[in-house]
Design a protein around this nucleic acid. Structure first.
Length: 803
RNA sequence: GCUUCUGUGGCGGAACUGGUAGACGCGCACGACUCAAAAUCGUGUGGCCUUUGGUCAUAAGGGUUCGAUUCCCUUCAGAAGCACCA
């Protein structure tokens, strides 16, 4: 119908030439920062899912600009990481080359979509000018004691000889070769994220994240409050356990300690069955996390012979077991086991023939089949039994009294534990930011001098990982060998690189001041933009990326480098675009839709409108080509509507115009793009029915549609002789025009609709009731019945209740 | 197992703080234009019935209410995240 190719190209060039979307630091206009997660520039190009979230926020950015705000809507690329590395290994192309090409493709596709990004701020996390500051920030963290190196069990593929992330070892199988993944100890850089658990929890109050996003973060942090109790070992020594159910302490019949924890190593000299115990430890370490959690829920373990612990309250001697359900990395790595009141302990006790002691009495106890657990006994007013002087107390009272008692004895303290661990910050890969640390035999780990940054990635020729799992960087000796910055002696560089999450943890700050070469972003610039007002990304990133980014910012804040403790205000997430078959798009399923094909055949505006109209933005939606054609038809009809224009500056329908302005504006700000489009369709339907449309009507229609379909609207707007929409202001609606002088009154009898009639908006309740009662069909339904009462909602409804 | 979300015509989805269920779009049917088709335009479109009306319908069942897609309880189904976290 219309030549979208020509029109779209024309306006894209116009915007480029006029720098229409440039955000100005320090402008007097109100700053507004809209951010959509920058993509990983994969070889397969832009995905229709990208188009959805970019269009949505492009619409928001365009409207905000028209409303006179200084909008920062930036775009960049997160290009470090495994896929580029894999690609390099396969094709023997340096990842920097592949990344360069992929970015070019992505950028070209984005431009063809007409997104109003401020391209003058573009960067990639792989740019030395950018990762210089990622490294610099790491050094600040190190200097504040937040980075440390420690031996950690990691996922290890014995075949590929490579360390895998949890994501790459799903199902306990190596993603690359399919071998079974095992646990291996490796020395890793760590960031003390657990120190910030409480701050990250509290900080949520200063944000406007969507509830489900906040919840995701809260769950991930996983705070639990309990008591840490010291336990004496028969014959000397002691260890601690963590519990949230101190009220059951009199019911302890054994302790379980983690096979991968430190405690068993300390106890080892006194263990009588060393062989058996060592064998079990080996076995546990060989199992991947997967085995330990999903496949093997059976309660395996061995008795540690020769060592007994003393129940801190009853002084009874109880056995110690090793069990892999106890994790070395959580709490103290040791638990008290109360089989009568904890299902997991119960199963373990059954499997190993350990006795149980009931210490809480209540209804419906059935210890032959299951434990009487916390969630059951807390609901009822169960009382303690077999608990010495605490017997007879309620569970709530006992919790407090026992804690106090143990505190006074000096053998317990109240503690909070968090599921969230410290962040494993090193990867044995070469396509990442080099960690700017140097190891010197004499001085230990020494940070690089800040003035020597960036530490550039050397030109790697051999991409394959080394046999011992070190990064390929380790093989580049002239890069590895260096002088110790402290003593000047020979030293070696760290060859691990940072994880992919590093660069994305602060990129939103760099967008505020992207070309700064003496700091990562100036305080002035950050104070001007203040916060990211809107941040959009996938739900899959709410736990990790968002938490890492907040942690990173909170550290920077504590060292005085950023103005706010939370730099992201509102976080929203989009639903996925699924394939036409309703399944997640993937090459293997062959259900991938390439946005380029759609743009070529239907134009960018149609694709944009379609993806906004497809359904609730925050919900998943399946691709439907027919529905897309409907959107094309909609744009064609608007194009055709131009033939009906009559030269007038008046609106034919004030109510329609004003209510649509209000609707579109509110809907964009609340992410209800689908209903914004539908209200515009209603408008078009109306004007088509009227056979004529005034120039004023048409101009408003084009302006309101512009955020969604910027090219065709600019073109038509120009053709009718107006100034470009992007230079205009967003229309304001007149509240007084939203009041109608008539409304359709609905009359119900006993809640069922029995009549509708158009009446004046000025009607009083009495007038409404009288009118209602006069309707024939209503009379029929109240005949011979007694009117009990009449409920009248002004300007809406009258409900007559009869008996 | 835990947490969260979702469940509305043939389909995608509307319905503001409880107030006309099915907006808008797709599909379908019929009609116009055409030699014909496509495109376009017009009309209709939840089921059933005795069809200017009635009745049943928002996963199923119950409750609160004059009135429930919306609030509460129970059950079922699907999705996502976490997963032996003491």
């Amino acid at each position: 119908m219309y030549n979208f190719k020509e029109i779209e190209k024309k306006w894209q060039e116009y915007w480029d030439k006029n720098e229409t979307f440039k955000a100005i630091n320090g402008s007097d206009k109100k700053p507004y920062y809209v951010l959509v997660e920058f993509p990983y520039p994969s070889g397969s190009g832009l995905h229709v899912g990208h188009v959805r979230s970019y269009t949505a926020h492009d619409a928001m950015a365009r409207m905000k600009r028209m409303k006179g705000e200084n909008v920062l809507f930036p775009m960049g690329f997160d290009a470090f990481g495994a896929p580029a590395e894999q690609y390099a290994i396969k094709n023997h192309i340096h990842p920097s080359q592949a990344v360069k090409e992929n970015i070019k493709t992505f950028k070209g596709q984005m431009k063809k979509m007409g997104f109003s990004f401020d391209w003058s701020r573009e960067f990639s996390t792989t740019d030395p000018e950018y990762y210089k500051w990622t490294q610099w920030q790491f050094l600040q963290f190190y200097k504040h004691g937040m980075a440390y190196k420690e031996k950690m069990p990691v996922n290890w593929c014995p075949n590929c000889k490579i360390v895998l992330s949890n994501e790459d070892s799903q199902g306990g199988v190596c993603e690359r070769c399919g071998s079974k993944v095992v646990q291996k100890e490796k020395s890793q850089w760590m960031l003390r994220m657990s120190n910030y658990a409480e701050d990250l929890l509290k900080g949520l109050d200063d944000t406007n994240f969507a509830d489900k996003v906040k919840l995701g973060q809260i769950n991930w942090i996983g705070k639990s409050s309990g008591v840490e109790v010291d336990v004496d070992i028969v014959g000397g020594g002691k260890f601690s356990i963590f519990t949230t159910c101190i009220e059951t302490i009199y019911g302890i019949t054994f302790f379980v300690i983690a096979p991968d924890g430190k405690l068993i190593k300390e106890l080892m000299p006194r263990v009588e069955n060393k062989e058996e115990v060592n064998a079990y430890i080996e076995e546990t370490l060989l199992k991947s996390n997967m085995d330990r959690t999903e496949l093997n829920k059976g309660k395996t373990g061995v008795l540690v012979k020769g060592i007994k612990a003393i129940n801190p309250v009853t002084k009874e001697e109880v056995p110690i077991y090793l069990g892999d359900f106890v994790l070395g990395s959580y709490g103290t790595g040791a638990v008290m086991a109360v089989p009568a009141h904890d299902q997991r302990d119960y199963e373990y006790a059954k499997a190993h023939n350990i006795k149980m002691i009931k210490v809480i009495d209540g209804e419906g106890i059935d210890l032959d089949n299951s434990a009487y657990e916390k969630d059951q006994y807390l609901k009822t007013d169960s009382k303690l039994v077999n608990s010495d002087k605490f017997s007879g107390l309620s569970v709530i009272e006992a919790k407090e009294e026992i804690t106090k008692y143990l505190e006074e004895k000096g053998i317990a303290r109240r503690v909070n534990n968090y599921k969230m661990r410290d962040w494993i910050f090193s990867r044995q890969r070469f396509w990442g930011e080099p960690i700017p640390m140097i190891y010197c035999e004499k001085c230990g780990w020494v940070p690089m001098d800040e003035k020597d940054l960036p530490l550039l990635l050397p030109n790697v020729v051999e991409y394959e990982p080394t046999d011992n799992g070190e990064s390929p960087l380790a093989k580049i000796t002239d890069w590895v060998n260096c002088k110790c910055p402290k003593c000047g002696e020979d030293a070696k560089r760290e060859t691990d690189t940072m994880p992919q999450w590093a660069g994305s943890s602060w990129y939103f700050l760099r967008f505020m001041d992207p070309h700064n070469d003496h700091e990562f972003a100036s305080m002035d610039a950050m104070k001007y933009w203040n916060k990211v007002n809107w941040y959009n990304g996938g739900m899959e990133h709410t736990a990790r990326h968002l938490l890492y980014a907040r942690f990173w910012v909170q550290m920077l804040y504590d060292y005085g480098f950023v103005p706010n403790r939370e730099m992201i205000d509102t976080r929203v997430s989009h639903g996925m675009i699924l394939g036409p078959d309703g399944l997640k798009m993937s090459k293997s399923k062959g259900n991938v839709i390439n946005p380029d094909d759609i743009v070529n055949e239907y134009g960018a505006d149609t694709l944009r409108v379609y993806e906004m109209f497809i359904g609730d933005y925050q919900q998943d939606a399946a691709w439907n080509i027919d529905s897309l054609k409907g959107c094309k038809r909609f744009l064609d009809r608007i194009f055709k509507l131009k033939e009906n224009i009559i030269d007038s500056n008046n609106y034919t329908d004030e109510f329609l115009v004003n209510s649509t302005i209000k609707k579109v504006e509110n809907d964009i700000l609340t992410l209800k793009f689908n209903t914004a489009i539908s209200s515009l369709m209603i408008m078009v339907n109306e004007y088509e029915k009227q056979k004529t449309i005034t120039k004023a009507d048409y101009s408003i229609l084009l302006t309101l549609l512009n955020p969604f379909a910027p090219h065709i609207t600019e073109e038509l707007n120009e053709q009718i002789g107006n100034d470009p929409i992007c230079n205009n202001t967003w229309p304001t609606y007149d509240q007084s025009k939203l009041v109608k002088d008539k409304f359709e009154m609905v009359v119900q009898v006993n809640g069922k609709v029995r009549g509708k009639i158009e009446v004046s908006s000025d009607f009083t309740n009495e007038e409404m009731e009288q009118t209602a009662l006069s309707l024939d069909n209503v009379k029929k339904h109240i005949e011979n019945k007694k009117i009990v009462k009449i409920i009248t909602i002004p300007k809406k409804i009258v409900n007559i209740v009869v008996k």
